[in-house]
């Protein structure tokens, strides 16, 4: 299998703080890779490096075969930041429209994608609502829709399901499953263990270091636990 994301001894320092510490990731094409770890363990920082938003202090990272930062991968990747990054004074429809235009989509394509995506994130009836008037969860849903607008082949989703109600969360995971069937790769961070167990593979990070990688089954087996949550706690404690 081909690796679409690779990091080699990736290090990111903020002054004296090492947010990412010799991280080695390998993410394969077509998988949902769950990136889990305690608050401040370096998940967001890693994603930002992979998206070219931050420069690594040491080490290298490759995305779709390109050494990052490299803008040539941008048409092919989708990025959903942890905070729903949207323009508050724009309507839902204009938000989709603007980002569609940035990716060079034609008017007809944008309209088609808008229909599909707003149906998916259940915001169909909100086309003319201003972003500032959406609820927190709705903003998050719109933010996810925006990162999907151009049918990217690689998705970086930083906690996409925070504040989303259970029914929608279930449909999100179904959707991610469908995407990977089409060959899309998804890197997703989450604090929900039930979600992590739906991933094809899980990477556990602590203080910027990868402490375990494997399918949820492998990880549970290795620690001899029944739930991924217990397994996670086990790995985290062991690394102390």
């Amino acid at each position: 299998m081909k690796n679409v994301v690779v990091t080699k001894d990736l290090v990111k320092e903020f002054g004296k703080l090492r947010a990412v510490n010799r991280l080695n990731l390998e993410i394969q094409k077509g998988e949902v890779y769950g990136f889990i770890g305690p608050n401040g363990s370096g998940k967001t920082t890693t994603i930002k490096i992979l998206c070219g938003l931050l420069e690594a202090t040491y080490g290298e990272s490759f995305v779709l075969g390109r050494r990052m930062p490299d803008p040539s991968v941008y048409p092919r990747i989708g990025y959903m930041p942890q905070e729903s990054a949207l323009y508050p004074d724009l309507t839902v429809s204009h938000t989709i429209g603007f980002f569609g235009e940035l990716y060079g989509l034609r008017k007809g394509e944008i309209e088609k994608r808008e229909k599909e995506l707003l149906a998916f994130v259940d915001l169909k009836g909100r086309r003319r609502t201003l972003v500032s008037n959406l609820s927190g969860g709705m903003k998050h849903r719109l933010s996810l829709a925006v990162s999907l607008i151009h049918n990217p082949e690689l998705l970086f989703l930083d906690e996409p399901t925070v504040g989303i109600d259970p029914e929608l969360r279930a449909s999100f995971w179904e959707y991610f499953g469908n995407l990977t069937d089409e060959g899309v790769t998804v890197l997703i961070t989450t604090h929900y263990m039930d979600e992590a167990s739906k991933c094809d593979r899980v990477g556990m990070i602590r203080e910027g270091k990868l402490v375990a990688v494997g399918t949820p089954e492998e990880l549970k087996k290795e620690t001899d636990t029944v739930s991924l949550e217990d397994s996670f706690l086990h790995f985290i404690r062991r690394s102390d």
Partner: peptide
């Protein structure tokens, strides 16, 4: 501060 600039940076623009 909105984070939209990051979004623009990760787009082809």
């Amino acid at each position: 501060t909105n984070g939209t600039l990051d979004r623009l940076f990760v787009s082809p623009i």
